[in-house]
């Protein structure tokens, strides 16, 4: 049957005469026919809502979703950007949460990945164990730590007691709440960094390592000047993925401190703040403004990281 093929079809699709016309049409337009459903889905439910969020940020929409709203120009932006009571502290907490969590996750993740790198007996089981925090439901993880960090009955204070250290307020303290939630984030997501870096390490070739060893490089020198530079692209991907998710952290903050990030807004990040404005106070206009600014912050952070990555490649 392959005898009478190609000549008739302009685009080189090998369609025999038994192929109906519509099938040939489908074949020639497959590029967009395949991609279109997903693209349309995303466009309708993402691009349009995002544009609407942009529009809402210029209105005084509040209360019921059916209520009339008025165009107020950039008034919301002026209000939000001059709000030193909730907005700027939330920006600060978002930056602190993301920065500190990322730092710990990268350093610990790198250390654990290096520990796991060379094969050993039982390696498979250790890898499975590493996966567990990662797949656990974040709100459940938040609740679990809420019990462990309970000032009165929690395991954390009990454990401190064994070392003669007095009880800490953990999540209940005004200044200890944010560091405690960072700890929870590090517990859950360091394994993610480990897995990504481990995949990177395993794909490295052995030769540069060998060469450095023959040249008499110490373990630290080999890590610093051979492994780390080669691993840089993978590390950047890990930082990028984790960074985006850390900026958007919501589940564990809501699970441990509830609405508004606690009674003093101790853990109120931009995402928690925007959520509260939208769904606790129905301040859709202002919340849209916060969301647009938050979105710009995320894009900015990503842009800075990818720019760095390109530089590193050069």
């Amino acid at each position: 049957m392959a005898t009478i093929t190609t000549s008739k079809t302009a685009r080189g699709a090998a369609t025999g005469p038994e192929t109906p016309g519509w099938a040939r049409w489908v074949d020639n337009h497959r590029k967009w026919l395949f991609a279109a459903p997903a693209m349309i889905f995303v466009a309708v439910l993402l691009v349009f809502p995002l544009a609407w969020t942009g529009y809402l940020s210029l209105t005084d929409a509040e209360g019921s979703v059916r209520a009339e709203s008025e165009f107020v120009g950039f008034q919301n932006y002026l209000d939000v950007l001059s709000d030193t009571d909730r907005f700027w502290p939330a920006v600060g907490r978002t930056a602190a949460f993301t920065g500190v969590a990322l730092l710990f996750e990268v350093v610990l993740g790198m250390a654990i990945a290096l520990l796991l790198w060379r094969p050993f007996k039982g390696q498979k089981w250790v890898r499975v164990a590493i996966l567990m925090p990662l797949v656990a439901t974040p709100v459940a993880v938040g609740m679990m730590w809420r019990l462990i960090f309970d000032p009165n009955i929690g395991l954390a204070n009990q454990a401190l007691g064994w070392f003669g250290i007095g009880p800490q307020p953990w999540l209940a303290g005004q200044h200890t709440a944010l560091p405690t939630t960072i700890f929870i984030d590090v517990w859950q997501w360091t394994p993610m960094v480990v897995l990504i870096l481990l995949a990177g390490l395993t794909s490295l070739s052995e030769e540069p390592q060998e060469a450095a060893r023959i040249d008499g490089a110490s373990t630290w020198q080999r890590f610093r000047h051979v492994t780390l530079p080669l691993l840089m692209p993978t590390l950047t991907v890990a930082i990028l993925l984790r960074g985006i998710d850390a900026l958007k952290t919501f589940d564990i903050l809501y699970a441990t401190k509830g609405r508004g990030g606690g009674s003093f807004h101790e853990v109120e990040t931009l995402n928690v703040y925007a959520y509260g404005l939208s769904f606790d106070y129905n301040e859709y206009g202002v919340s849209s403004t916060v969301l647009i600014l938050f979105f710009l912050l995320i894009i900015g952070a990503m842009w800075a990281l990818t720019a760095r990555r390109k530089e590193a490649k050069r």
């Binding site: 997903a38 993402l46 938050f294």
Partner: peptide
């Protein structure tokens, strides 16, 4: 990139318009 944007955007910024509609 358009599809992957969905991974970057904070969920709340989609929820507000969705909730409206």
């Amino acid at each position: 990139l358009v599809v992957l944007m969905a991974r970057v955007i904070p969920g709340v910024s989609l929820l507000v318009p969705w909730y409206y509609v």
